[in-house]
Design a binder for these strands. Structure first.
Lengths: 115, 115
DNA sequence: CCGGATATATCCACATCGGATACAACGACA
DNA sequence: TGTCGTTGTATCCGATGTGGATATATCCGG
């Protein structure tokens, strides 16, 4: 099992995290990221769609047919994680988890049940 | 309470986190980051020292006299967090914590005592 | 049918990053 | 004492990622 071939960018992780809950289209990803961070993190169209393209090219994400119920908005393009994409997201999330733990150890955050 | 004036870069947070445990010199910060991430995150001299300079310029970090015991290595330059720097680190760590929680909710990570 | 929000896509200027390079000082060792 | 590998800091440059503006097209409400 080789390392993550192309290293994951910050924006890349945001997108993977947004898609971890299921398939979604670009604009929804944008709103997810903004909502999750209370507006402090924003992607902007440039970063968002370029990042999606790169993730697809790297095999972390695939475009899927809009299998939703009624045929609402024809413009939307839906994406979902590949197994590879999911594992990349897990790996990055673990890393963040370790950094959060370190922050707790340093007294930066209220500690969340260490045991 | 104004927003973080200059937004914190990823490398910037790594450095702040390393300094959260107390004053340290650049090379030690480099090793701290590498150790914490099991070698997956590296700063490299370029990013490291440039980042330190920027953090100092932004008032998040100050250089301090080497108050350590014996006068060992004259080359080392020690830095520590300012109150502003600490609060920026707290803010960023909280954001990461929220992203980790989202990752847990999405089933990416083993859940750590939700209740 | 008209205007604003939704939705995607591309372009360009700017910031950041990573590695190479350089150089000085420390420590070990013969 | 001299030499060599490691520690430690600093700068430069090419490559990469980001953010915002711009451009369209579609959806929905009045």
């Amino acid at each position: 099992m080789p390392d993550r071939n192309p290293p994951l960018t910050p924006a890349g992780f945001q997108v993977l995290l947004a898609l971890a809950g299921g398939a979604a289209h670009g604009y929804a990803v944008m709103r997810f990221v903004e909502t999750l961070s209370d507006g402090t993190v924003r992607l902007g169209p440039g970063t968002l769609y370029r990042t999606l393209q790169r993730l697809v090219a790297d095999g972390l994400v695939v475009e899927v047919a809009n299998e939703s119920e009624d045929p609402h908005d024809a413009r939307r393009r839906y994406y979902e994680l590949t197994p590879l994409g999911r594992s990349a997201a897990v790996q990055e999330a673990s890393l963040l988890q370790r950094m959060v733990s370190a922050a707790e150890d340093a007294g930066l955050l209220g500690r969340r049940k260490t045991a």
